[in-house]
Each structure stands twice: as C-alpha cells, then as structure tokens.
C-alpha cells in the first residue's frame, strides 16, 4: 500500500504529502523517540501522539514513510513547518493509535 492508500484507508487529513506514492513496508506505534529511532523499520507508517518538532528529525533519521498523528492530535506550528521543509509525509487522524494500526494491519 502507498502512503496515499493509507490516507484514504484512514480518512486521514494531510498536513504534508511530499511523496504519496511511497510504498509502506511496515507499521510502528510509539511515542518515546529513542524507541522509535531504534525500532521503527525503514519505510514504515509511524503511529504516534507526539506532535512536537523533534518528530520530524526522528522520522527523517529513521526514514519513516509517513507519520500518522492519532487521537485527533495536530502538529504544533514548528512541526508543520519543518515537515514541509524536509519533505516528510505527515497526516492526522481522529482514530486512536490502536484503531489506526488495526485498520492498517495486514493491508501493507
């Protein structure tokens, strides 16, 4: 499934879509950035409630395909700006992390 496919599947709102055609390889759920850095697979959809600017650095360094902010969380202004500068895909959904991961599981 592509990032655009995931957006459709979750009915997610787009904050920045730099590469909607990128193919998702896996999913990862978590908020502690050290765990995400070391465990999120390259090309994954990262489901989180963290919404500060450091999310962009972690997504870039771990090479996540898309960041999905869950639970109705919206990015703070610095994050919204940084993902545009860095070409990081970032979307939001009202689903819980569990619901979003469940909806995605088995469809990648």
């Amino acid at each position: 499934m592509t990032v655009e496919g995931l957006v459709d599947l979750l009915g997610a709102r787009i904050v920045n879509l730099a590469d909607g055609e990128r193919v998702l390889t896996a999913g990862y759920c978590g908020d502690f950035l050290s765990f995400v850095m070391s465990k999120a697979p390259e090309g994954c959809a990262w489901f989180t409630v963290m919404s500060n600017v450091n999310v962009c650095a972690v997504a870039t360094l771990a090479d996540c395909a898309v960041v999905v902010l869950c639970e109705g969380v919206t990015p703070d202004a610095a994050l919204a700006e940084k993902v545009k500068q860095q070409d990081v895909n970032l979307v939001t959904t009202g689903m819980t992390v569990y619901e979003a991961a469940l909806a995605t599981a088995g469809r990648l």
Partner: peptide, 16 residues
Amino acid sequence: ALGFGAGMGLPNMKKY
C-alpha cells in the same frame, strides 16, 4: 513530555 528521557540514549549509542 517531548518524547525524550526513555533512558535508551546511551544504550542505543552503544548498541548501534
């Protein structure tokens, strides 16, 4: 609250 401080920084540095 920013998502840091999991206590995995130095262990990650050593591990990788």
